[in-house]
Design a protein around this nucleic acid. Structure first.
Lengths: 187, 187
DNA sequence: CTCAACTGTATCTGTCAGATATATTGAGGG
DNA sequence: CCCTCAATATATCTGACAGATACAGTTGAG
């Protein structure tokens, strides 16, 4: 089936609870943004196709014109099938590392600025993840029935934390090396 | 200008030496694959546009029909402009973490298999990077004129190594947690 | 009451990877 | 000398995707 990545994510979100297209995008943005992204331009066509295929049902929502989407039994089954398929590898595209690879075109000074900015992004990421961790742990304390689910969520947060800390450690190394390169250039 | 990411990468590769579209894709695949990817479907249209804009020149290559592309002065200038622009953030799409976030749908066993596979990919990545590091260091020893360039290359290799080691450390943590979850389930 | 912010649906454009088609060349085997 | 296979090389098509944009109903603060 076409568009499988977005459809997988949409079905997975709907497995938590029936909701609107807008709220699906909100949840992805709020809670999965460290490792996933979705846009309205993909979500609405995906919902239409899933409905067409009988994998979701639509009931009118609270607001005029809003539509609550919920999984059908076939949808739940299809979701499990899709989750069992091997993950699709994301194409790598890191603009900072591309610029660094061709670093002698920009020079050590400009490269250091890029690395510094990347380091600050990782630090912000780390702070965001700490906040998310606190939120999830509070949620777990408030509703022990969700305990299993929150343990999985914490695994994904830990992945982000490891990656962010590694990026910061690399940035420090790289900044030292770039300072050395600049000193050598001005010798 | 349209297609700016691919055009940036193509111009940057051509700053090393004039070459064919095929070889551009080869170089990206061989040396930048840890943090960049390009496809023929993007490279050939990009080359046509860059030629149209007067940023590259085309001369016939050794083989019949092959075309050697080289930077013009305008192209070199445009490349520096593009490198100076802030990097475009890549959309995150990590299928493993998506499956883990919804981990109670798959269960701890299947999740552990996914994490184990991810760990093995990172280990292979680490080995590939070690090989690349050795290759670059040999190249540096052979041609000291390239010493500065190779130092930038080693920075990008170090970034990959940090990321891969972090992924492995996370995977070990996650596998322990998933084993615990499974034990709790079967209690 | 009004306006700004939020909720909500929907489409369009440009970017992109991967698959595919096609042709040439060089090396090795028969 | 010919055949085949792999590597080199150009080119296009399709479907996936993000981000921008348009539009409209709703709510709450001032």
């Amino acid at each position: 089936m076409a568009n499988s990545q977005t459809e997988l994510a949409v079905l997975a979100v709907l497995s938590i609870r029936p909701t609107t297209g807008y709220a699906i995008r909100e949840l992805v943005h709020e809670r999965l943004s460290a490792f996933w992204s979705e846009s309205f331009g993909q979500i609405y066509p995906a919902l239409a196709r899933l409905r067409e295929a009988g994998l979701i049902e639509v009931t009118p929502g609270e607001r005029t014109g809003s539509a609550l989407h919920s999984l059908t039994d076939a949808g739940r089954e299809h979701l499990l099938d899709m989750l069992s398929e091997p993950p699709v590898a994301a194409r790598p595209r890191n603009g900072v590392l591309l610029r660094l690879f061709f670093g002698d075109l920009l020079g050590p000074r400009a490269c250091a600025a890029l690395v510094q900015a990347a380091k600050e992004r990782s630090e912000r990421q780390l702070a965001d993840l700490a906040a998310a961790r606190a939120e999830v742990e509070a949620e777990r304390a408030a509703d022990p029935a969700d305990a299993t689910r929150t343990r999985y969520w914490l695994l994904t947060i830990a992945a982000g934390e490891h990656a962010a800390r590694a990026a910061i450690a690399w940035a420090d190394e790289a900044l030292a090396e770039l300072a050395d390169l600049e000193a050598g250039e001005n010798r």
